[in-house]
Structure formats: C-alpha cells, structure tokens
Design a protein around this nucleic acid. Sequence first.
DNA 1: GGTATTCGAGAAAACGTTTTCTCCGATTTT
DNA 2: AAAATCGGAGAAAACGTTTTCTCGAATACC
Lengths: 346, 346
Amino acid sequence: MSIHEVARRAKVSIATVSRTINGVSTVTPQLSRRVWRVVEELGYYPNTQARSLVSGRSRIFGLIVSEITNPFFPEIIQGFEDIAVHNNYEILTTSTVHDPKRIALSVRRMIERRVEGVAIVTFGMEEALFVDLKTRKIPLVFIDVGPPLPRISNIRIDYQHGIRQAVQHLAALCHERIAFISGPLILKSAIARQHAFTESMDEIGLAVDPHYLIEGDHTMEGGIKAFKKILNFPKRPTAVICSNDMTAIGVMRQSYEEGIHIPRDLSLVGFDDIRLAQFMIPPLTSIKMSQTEIARMAFNALLSEVQRDIPSPNGSEYVLRTSLVLRDSTAMAPMGGRKKIASLKM
Amino acid sequence: MSIHEVARRAKVSIATVSRTINGVSTVTPQLSRRVWRVVEELGYYPNTQARSLVSGRSRIFGLIVSEITNPFFPEIIQGFEDIAVHNNYEILTTSTVHDPKRIALSVRRMIERRVEGVAIVTFGMEEALFVDLKTRKIPLVFIDVGPPLPRISNIRIDYQHGIRQAVQHLAALCHERIAFISGPLILKSAIARQHAFTESMDEIGLAVDPHYLIEGDHTMEGGIKAFKKILNFPKRPTAVICSNDMTAIGVMRQSYEEGIHIPRDLSLVGFDDIRLAQFMIPPLTSIKMSQTEIARMAFNALLSEVQRDIPSPNGSEYVLRTSLVLRDSTAMAPMGGRKKIASLKM
DNA sequence: GGTATTCGAGAAAACGTTTTCTCCGATTTT
DNA sequence: AAAATCGGAGAAAACGTTTTCTCGAATACC
C-alpha cells in the first residue's frame, strides 16, 4: 500500500523508491528497474496528501463560477480542466449559484485544501468574499476587475469591439431603433456592456432611446420579461441586442408566442456565443467571447504566478477581444426606415 | 499558520487545539474560548491534507461524467455539489469527453487523491477502466449497470415507464407512424431505450417499421443527420421520439430548415427533459429523467457505503422512474390516419 | 599508492494533523 | 480520612511522503 511496502519488497530504502518515482537521476538503472517492477506489481499509487504535505504544493487550483447550469460556464470548466490535466493539476470547482454564503464556504474549503491559486470566473462579485484568499497571498485571477495587483491577475474583456460590430451590422441593415437588454446593473460587466452599446450607437450617429435600455438578469426568464416590456412601447424597436445568449433565447421564445418572426419582423443579436446559439431557430447571431480562451488565460495566469520564485510586484493582464458572429437572426429592417438611414450613412 | 502556532499563543498543547476545533467535549470551556479566540485572531484554517493523512479519510468523492458541455450533466454536477457541500465533502469532477485515456488518467488521479468513492454518470462505459477502483474496494455507483456488487451500487433507470407514456400519448393523438432516433447502439442505455420503445409500440398494437429506428449519437448534429435520413423515406413518420433532448433539438433545427412545422406537420418528443427543453420553439415535450434525483441517489449511495463500518455484501440499488412532460411539440397527427387508430383504440 | 573527490543510497527529519497513552489533580466512595 | 475513580490536558506516536544529511565505496588525481 505505501512506499514502505514497495521499499521492503524491492529491498531498497524508501528514499530510493521516492527518488525512482520522481525520476531523480541519481538512481542506478538496476535499482530503478527493481523498484518499478514492484510498483507495477503492487499497483502502487503515491498518496498525494502526504506528498503535498511535505512538499508544500498541493497541485490544486480552485475554480469559482457563477452557475454551472448556465451553458456559458461548462465550456469554461471544460477548457480549464483540459489544460489542468495537461499540467498535472487538479481542479476544485464551485458553482456559487449567486449565494454569498456558498462562496464564503467554498473559499474556506479551498484554503483548507491549500489550493495554489483560484480562478474567479463570475461576472460581478463581492470582492470582500475573497479577502481571505488575498491575505494569504494566494494567486488569483479575475475577469474584468481593475488593474492587476500583487499576485492578482486580470482578464480584461474588450466588450467594445464586438458590440460596435453588432451595432454597425444592424445599422447597415437599416435598423434605427435598437434596444439593448442588459444584465443586472449591479454587475460591473453588465454596465460595461451597456456602456459599450450606447457608445457604439453614439459613434454611428444613432439615438439611444432610454426606454430601449432594459435591465434583464442574464436568464431566459429575464429575457422573456424584458421583451414583454419592450413590446408595450408605442414605438417598437426593430432590433434587439442582448447582454447574453440566454436572454436572447428568452426573447426568441417570447417572440414565438407573440407571432413575431425573427428575423423578418425583428433582428436579434446575442452575446457570449454559447455553443447552443448556432442551434437556435433561427441560428442566433451573437457576439463571441471565447470561453476556451478565457479558461486558457485564467489557467496560465495562475500557473505563471505559481511558477515564478521571485514574486512579481503585480499579476499579469490579459485582454480578450470579442467579435460578431453572423448567423440568421438578423436581417434588413422592416418597413421604411430605409431612406433615413441610407442618407445618414452617406 | 499551523496548529502549533495556535497552541503556542493560546498557551495550550496542540492536542487541545485539535480537540477544540473538532468539538471534542472534554475541553474546558475556558480553554476552548481561549483557543477559539486565537483561531479567529490568526485566521487559522486547518490543513486538510495533514488531517486526512492521519485520519485516513479524505472527504473527497470523485464524479465522472461524459461531457460537461452536454446540458444534461451540469444539472447533475450542481445537484451533486449541493449535497456534497451540505455533507462537507469535496468533489473531483472529470469530464471524460469519451476519451478512454482521459478516464484512465482521471481514475488514477482520484486514487492518488484517495477519494472515498466515485460516482460514474456516463451512459455506457468500458468497465475495464474502473478495475483499479474496484480492486481497491473504493465504493462506486453506476447508472444502469447490472445488479449491485460488493461496494458497488447501481441506479437503475426505469425507461419503460416514460417511453410507454410517450407512445400512448402519440397514439391517442392518432399517430401511427412513429420513428425513434436512438443513441449510439454500443451503449447499453441506448439499447434499453430503444427496446422500451419497440416494447411499448407492441403493447399498444402499433407496427414498428425497422426503417423508423435510426441510430443517432446523442448530439444535435446527430439529430440533424438522423432526421435527414428519415425525410428520405417514401412514407414519412408523423411523429419522432428522440433518445435525448439534444437529438430532438437537432430535429427541430432541421425541420425548421425544411419548412416542416412542429407540431402541425410533425410531433416530437425528447428524452431527459433538460432545462432548455421548455425554452425551445415550440417548448419540447420530453420524458423527464430527473438529474437532481440522480445526483441525490448517487451521493447517498456513496455516503451510506462509506459510513457503514461493516461492509455490506452488496451496494444498494435505486430506481429512478421516468415520466412524460407534456408541452407543445406534439399535436394531432396530420391527414387521415385518424379512423384507423380510432378503431384500433376501441 | 595514498589522498581527495565524486557518486549512489540509506537514515532521519520534517510536513500538520489526529488520537492513544499517560499523568496529575480533584471528586466520589466506603 | 484513605482509597478508588474520574476528568481534563499534555506528550508522543503515527499517517506517507520528500529531502537533507551522512556515510561508505569507488573513482580520479598527483
């Protein structure tokens, strides 16, 4: 069972067994062979706990996501796991379901397991919850927090790029009245996206009717509700951009109920480009924010922080660019908004 | 940092600190208070590795799923995590992505971490990969394997119940020609579902055209492909039952392309009832197989196996019943199949 | 050929806990 | 009041590793 048993059977010391397993080069080939043979024979697997207790390295990273049942996150988890496996790290995943108690508990447990770093991929969070991690100087990586701090890296999302593309795309299709369904506005990221939207509208010279800025909650149900509100306006928009794909799916669902045809009567753009988007009816035009890239960046941020021996003054900063993916949920604006825009574009 | 530091500051022995933290009742309230004060002050969190090294209990369960990006699984993971948190267990999740090498590696790592049990929620698997776990007598729980074995529990899914309901429902809507898109037939579970279908058709006196049994692969792409095949038959079916919801979503997608209206021209039934089903267009009638229940059963199976001191001769067996959830993707069969069925039902 | 150096492998310490064993003072028993 | 019991807390062993230290033998050097 233990290294002692292996040592006994191979008639060597436990030190030699340890060295053999870890590939330390000072072991004579002859002894090494003898040890390996016994290891195979016994099916001996080293005890990671003992190993990390003495070495002080757990080879575990924590991964905190908002909600694993939101299709955005599984892709991140998968990406993170892929690269972790490749680097011989274990992952402790927590799905917070937006419960601060749950986060606090999870942070505590991660510290108890002595994780070497934690990736926090939740859009908008109470920073206070991570103070325990910070004081312990555990490397962290966030999405979209401010500039990097000691041991804390940041992945900045360039929302502007993709959203500008979306607005330009819609404008080119002669849409004038474009609504935006945001995420919950307590989230920094939601504000950033909405801001990028109004900014882009300004740039291109389109008016943003404040009525057309609806607050959603990043869920399908929220999308349904928000779209109902939109339908109550006297002047309905001809296009809607959603702050995430789930919201867009909600809009699709409700427009089906109401007999509004997408894209004939309404153009729709999502955000995130989850895998499902391409299988919607019709396939959803969306702004891609590569989950795989996020996972990769997050992992690398932690890994490089862990591997450097002289702690850097600051963590690293990565930037992820977003970009529009065209599918079938957008089309020429209905009725006669055409002329006005056409003139506007000259 | 360590228990020694706490002991030093509280002027007690490390044994007393350990006892205090673990709530052993023999500690004087006065000392206990003193210890707790220092613990708070220092922000001391016990080292789980040391703890489980000496206690021999890691408080970790493994969870192996097929593919975390398949919406069926996140709900299971979430359910499993919820109950694990509640019982103070950690989870090591692996998404195998159908790669045997990946499974083998993951099993190895779980053993190295000394997991106390593993839930294997992959529909159809190579049992050989888990032999290492078995020889180590680590409690396991599978979905739909045979009768329980020593330390190995089983969650049996009663496919028949839900599928019979679906067939009866369609028959009542006067459908005669019902197709079934199965999962990959190397999977036991796929065969079981298909078998339940033919069985149910027989029961009710409907013929099963062998052409109407199509093999899919549990993906949306597979659903699209399978449905294309179906459309090539001279006599098209009026209803399709799919072996999982992703397949059904593929069918929806393709029928949209082909201008086939669901449910007017074609009735469609899914399987699994993933959360998304209700947000499809139209909302998908599906056979529910509660993911939360599966997670709960799996966890409890492991926990009860771990907690008993005298190992039971066999693990436990649980049964999960499936049942039809009616939504809007099924309707009266088109054209004049009505009379025949009506007479048949009398 | 004798001394200095290198090299390989064992002994032992250390990691941070839990838990058994031991001991001492206080309480109960007769 | 002396003996027996009990209760609380410290000492120390144990868990399974890695790694430093030590030592002996073999090689290299002059």
